[in-house]
């Protein structure tokens, strides 16, 4: 049944690529490092349906492919760092506090860590700490975009009838 997993993972990557593309049409939030983060809906789905390794594949392929197709390589270093750190943060949050938090809380954690990592990457690339004054705005925006993506992922999981894929599911 490995084919079924391959199918789901390919669909998630395609889904997140389309979301990244749609996001390029939405007027930018006038704060560097902040994004609506539509593609993180796919990351959340991957984390809730599969394991960490599979989610990592989805995130890394989405970012590298979208850098080739829609943006450029300067954007790659920002999105790659932001995407991976937020994935790790969301994975750990699920591991440690799954009973206390819903997917919305996990999504907020992911958005906040994404924004802060992008800020850190910008400090590193631009070689100045002066942009650290943007931190409060990036945190507020993380809450809002996190709630938005979390709600979307919640309703996709609720109505799409895809069940959590257990390990023996693809070893059958």
């Amino acid at each position: 049944m490995r084919t079924k997993k391959l199918l789901y993972v390919s669909l998630l990557i395609a889904f997140s690529l389309i979301l990244s593309y749609i996001e390029t049409f939405i007027p930018a939030i006038p704060i560097p490092g902040a994004k609506l983060g539509l593609a993180s809906i796919a990351t959340l789905l991957a984390l809730y349906l599969f394991d960490f390794k599979t989610s990592f594949t989805v995130v890394a392929l989405r970012i590298i492919l979208s850098a080739f197709m829609f943006t450029n390589f300067t954007a790659l270093i920002y999105s790659l760092s932001g995407g991976i750190v937020s994935l790790i943060a969301m994975y750990l949050t699920i591991k440690l506090a799954k009973d206390k938090l819903s997917i919305i809380g996990v999504s907020i954690i992911g958005a906040v860590f994404h924004n802060l990592t992008q800020l850190a990457a910008a400090i590193f690339v631009l070689g100045t700490v002066s942009i650290v004054t943007l931190t409060p705005w990036l945190l507020f925006l993380g809450i809002i975009t996190g709630i938005f993506t979390g709600l979307t992922a919640k309703y996709i999981l609720k109505y799409s009838h895809i069940k959590k894929q257990s390990d023996n599911f693809y070893n059958k």
């Binding site: 506090a97 206390k100 938090l101 819903s102 919305i104 809380g105 907020i108 954690i109 906040v112 931190t135 409060p136 705005w137 945190l139 507020f140 993380g142 809450i143 709630i147």
Partner: peptide, 21 residues
């Protein structure tokens, strides 16, 4: 939404307000 979600929102908002201050 679970209780923990609200807690996350409150904590992040509080940190943001402190940073803004």
């Amino acid at each position: 939404m679970k209780k923990g979600d609200n807690l996350i929102i409150i904590i992040v908002a509080a940190v943001a307000l402190i940073a803004l201050g």
